[in-house]
Design a protein around this nucleic acid. Sequence first.
DNA 1: AATCTTCCTGACAACGATGTCATTTATAGT
DNA 2: ACTATAAATGACATCGTTGTCAGGAAGATT
Lengths: 350, 350
Amino acid sequence: MTTMSESTSGTAPRARPTMRQVAALAGVGIKTVSRVINGEPNVSPAMIAKVKEAADSLDYQPDLHAGNLRRADGRTKTLGLLVGSVANPFYGTLHRAVEEAATARGIAVFASSLDDDPGREQGLVSAFLQRRVDGLILTTVTKSQAYLAAELRRGTPLVFIDREPAGIEADAVVSDNAAGSALATRHLLAHGHRRIAYLGDFDAIQTARERRRGFLEELGRAGVATRDIPVVVDLHDEAAANRAVLALLDSADPPTALFTSQNLVTIGAITALRDRSLQNRVALVGFDDISLADLLSPGITVIAQNPQRIGELAAERLLARLDGDRTPEHSYVVPTELIARGSGEIGPHA
Amino acid sequence: MTTMSESTSGTAPRARPTMRQVAALAGVGIKTVSRVINGEPNVSPAMIAKVKEAADSLDYQPDLHAGNLRRADGRTKTLGLLVGSVANPFYGTLHRAVEEAATARGIAVFASSLDDDPGREQGLVSAFLQRRVDGLILTTVTKSQAYLAAELRRGTPLVFIDREPAGIEADAVVSDNAAGSALATRHLLAHGHRRIAYLGDFDAIQTARERRRGFLEELGRAGVATRDIPVVVDLHDEAAANRAVLALLDSADPPTALFTSQNLVTIGAITALRDRSLQNRVALVGFDDISLADLLSPGITVIAQNPQRIGELAAERLLARLDGDRTPEHSYVVPTELIARGSGEIGPHA
DNA sequence: AATCTTCCTGACAACGATGTCATTTATAGT
DNA sequence: ACTATAAATGACATCGTTGTCAGGAAGATT
């Protein structure tokens, strides 16, 4: 007998019970407890009942990691998700979709924010890896993700989201940034605009560059001289965007339409247009949907991404890889969608 | 260059290296590797260099869980966060605050959504416990959380957020729901309203009941007969709220002001007021802040909660408990704040 | 020179579980 | 009744790491 009863009386035990303690209480071998807990076959009903009763009375919870140490497949039923920020609703929705697919298979999700900090990215990835996650879904901000090559070779599935990987071959799920921008541009051109200003995020961000490319290429296809097109980049917050738009509006030859490449930039543009009471005179299309955009006047026309679909697809790919899918790595492109709400349908007022 | 070469030659190893392999490569004992990896003292510089080189060349990552199995303190440097939904920006912000505090101490965060499902709550808690989280920060939807008593007794710190625990004594961090409602009510009364309608969420939700209580008690203090006050509850989405508000506006004696107890209900009320073109005639104060509320016309006056502060406090309490804080359990109340933006300052139009 | 510290180092058991395998017991087949 | 087969059970090694402890080398003290 191994009873040593730490300290006191009749209540539940103070220490966390082990399988050995359950076995002792039930008067059976430890392996039998293991079989019952894991629902393995070839255990008599009487044994099952005895063990379950002992386990319940001790409030026993198996230690997944101890088991995993010995288990053949080495799976921790855990996965890591690395996004820009969990406070960002775009990533929140994506996270939810990933969680849904994971939970359905008993997989728990670690979520962390990397905050545009390459050092933080590597630290968080390392923290996940030390906890032996079964796979990783991640946005990246490092120049190259070659540091993950060894891990990938060991069989840890990696799915990149939002931005494509560099220096390594792996699955990716991204939005159709250039095509979305082209769509927005075509929309504004179709409404008669020729002088369209572009307002973009940090040019260091891959998706920001893609969006700008889509915009400029579409103008090229339409035969609009890009020489006269105002392109402002490196706008990362509302205040900077507001200032940039005000400067454009106050210039000698102001644009008749604005294309903003990101959420906060769009909001900065809205406030700037209102500052000059031009919200019904200058057209605006923004990349990324904005909540309540339809309640504003005018409603804000946007190119909406589909974070839920991105999350679903990323999770689906990851789980498929875990199930042994060995098809070549692939980049999945999730289409964007133009939602017309008014601001993008304003014509050029000469 | 990056040929695939399944099982071959000189490249990095296929299997995940263990400490034993690093030791073998460096030609030292395994315990010495352990010392170097964990930065323990009393290792000669030459040894440190040798071991580090071997570890790097194998791309060795220590297995935190294996170590934890043997380690004295039994800490996994992992914590579980259970919220309504990670897609909800309120919880996203809270999550971020928790993550910030956790990451600073090398603690990784599991996040899951319970979706108002009591069964799911218990399943997720169990999943966390099996992964031996060091502590739990959680919103609950079960009637009683007595099922967690044994775990609490074992020393796993529990911090309840948003709603207070039942059937168990533990720390909690909650918003001042009743006081916030009273504040909103006082605001509307001060602007001359006497006929104020209340539109609330499912009455099964504790916070929803608290908000209603704060509203009715404040009316009582002001001597307003609650008999004539329209109180509609069990509204959980925008569409239901819209219908309820339309019904009130179309009634014989419509209210001059609305108090909506939750995000989606507030939005439903906004659309209903617009449907009747009454957004500048009927006052509205909503519980929970709404993004872009200041860009609407009128701007929406709200009682804002402080999810970041809730997250910070919850994390702070949890970490303190982990550090050995044995002070009695306590409920921390985070104040709410009224943000006046226009809709709540409309007077009663008789 | 002999002894005492102090510093380094590695052998070994242990953490809580599961895989393997041998053993016991029940069931069926003749 | 007696063996052949299947079902039920537990002893034991093992997963990757850290705690304990003992032993050897180097430096300090008498």
